[in-house]
Amino acid sequence: MRRTAWSVGAVATVLVATLVTASGVGAAIAAPSYPSWGDVQAAKANAAATQAQVDRINGLLAGLQTASNAASEAAVKRAGEYGLAELNLQKATAKATDLQARADSAKSEADTLRAQSGKLAEQMGRAGGSDYALRLFLTSDEQKTSDSLLYQLGAVAKLGANATKLFAAADEQKNLATSLSAQADTAQKIRDQLAAKAKSALEAAQAAHAAAEAELASQQEHASTLYAQLALLKNTAASFEQQYAQGVAAAAAAAQAANGSAGAGTHWVSAPTGMTVNPAAAQAYAAGQLGRYGWGSDQMSCLVRLWNQESGWRANAVNPSSDAYGIAQALPPEKMSSAGPDWLTNANTQIDWGLTYIKGRYGSPCGAWAHEVSNNWY
């Protein structure tokens, strides 16, 4: 995964700006002061100084993780807001389009009915309808029995009644067309407002994602040095210190899984992270991890159905109503940091967390799927 190079100052500026934009309130956060190698070497002079420096470094590492999680969580939240704005825009667009189509149809129907009523009026004019009525009034009773005259008079009356009905129907359709056109205009204005809101939400989501990526880059840059310094102070290896920290996080995640939760991701949208989303590759990776949890290949079909329903196996899936995120729809999403700091954009990290969660809470993917079927969440 490619990353943009950011200075620590730029990271802080973007992150603070994003958080201020998100909440409307914010204050500049001072960049942490990292120990130099000279500080570390000096601390080894006595046990108290060593422990103080160890505590300081552990605090900095925890702070890096917290800052990274906060930035990524803000990115997920902004993505959810964008997704909701986009859904509202789609609904408003569909409504405006439907109203305009109905208005056009009503206008067309009104024009047709008016044309038909006009033709009937013209026929009545040619038949001389008023002359028939006058002749009927002036004729004798014997003459009134003339079938021809009565028939002609009835035909004219029927034409008149039909014309009246057509005129009324034409007016009704015309009024309907006018009303629908007004509604369509209003709906279009609402649609334009929502389009602007969706555009603004997209820009906020993209900025938040950039801040999260920058914060993660900062974390990774400083964490490697801090782990090396920690190893020097404790006379261990940097890799050991990092693995130990990961083990502690994994143990905490396993304990949390027993009482944790994942989202019901049946209504998700794609977060604008710019990442490459590959559901097929995600499934292939997951299939290769089943054995690590003591599961057979028979569990894969349940896992596929489970995460198809939750996220479509998309690593950038976010539920706008809850901010559940990722392939496993973690809720809250920053819980996935126990599997790795790159949970925002790394499908494999998300899967590792999701499988650990399933193992701790349901025992197996089929157990999780059974719960999903019964409750629409797992």
Rank of each mutant, 00 (worst) to 15 (best):
D39E: 00
A161C: 06
T66V: 06
A339G: 07
W268H: 03
T50E: 03
S301N: 06
A198P: 04
T4N: 09
M124F: 06
T21C: 09
G83N: 13
A195N: 11
Q220M: 06
L303Q: 04
L60A: 03
A168W: 02
K91W: 04
N88V: 03
T186M: 07
T139I: 00
Q173G: 13
L166K: 14
A237Q: 12
G326T: 10
Q350R: 09
E122N: 09
D111F: 05
A103R: 15
D147F: 11
N162F: 06
A168R: 05
G354H: 14
L61M: 01
Q243I: 08
A79E: 06
V54C: 04
G125K: 12
T93D: 11
L232K: 08
T276H: 13
S179M: 10
E241Q: 15
Q220S: 03
A264S: 12
A249T: 00
L355V: 13
R102M: 04
S337M: 02
Q329A: 01
R114V: 10
R114H: 12
A127Y: 03
K335M: 05
D342N: 13
S297G: 08
E81S: 10
S36F: 00
T186L: 09
T178W: 10
G63Y: 01
G24A: 04
R56C: 00
A168Q: 05
L226N: 02
A257C: 04
Q329S: 05
S239C: 02
W6V: 05
A184R: 15
A75D: 08
L216A: 07
A249E: 09
S130M: 09
R314H: 15
A127D: 14
L61S: 00
A170I: 11
L153S: 03
A30S: 03
E81D: 09
K359D: 11
W268N: 02
A85N: 08
Q219M: 08
T186I: 10
E372V: 01
L166V: 08
G24N: 05
L344S: 07
I358G: 01
A196W: 02
A315Y: 08
C302Y: 14
A287R: 15
L344E: 12
W268I: 04
D147N: 12
W377L: 06
V40H: 00
A328N: 02
V25H: 12
D55E: 01
Q242V: 08
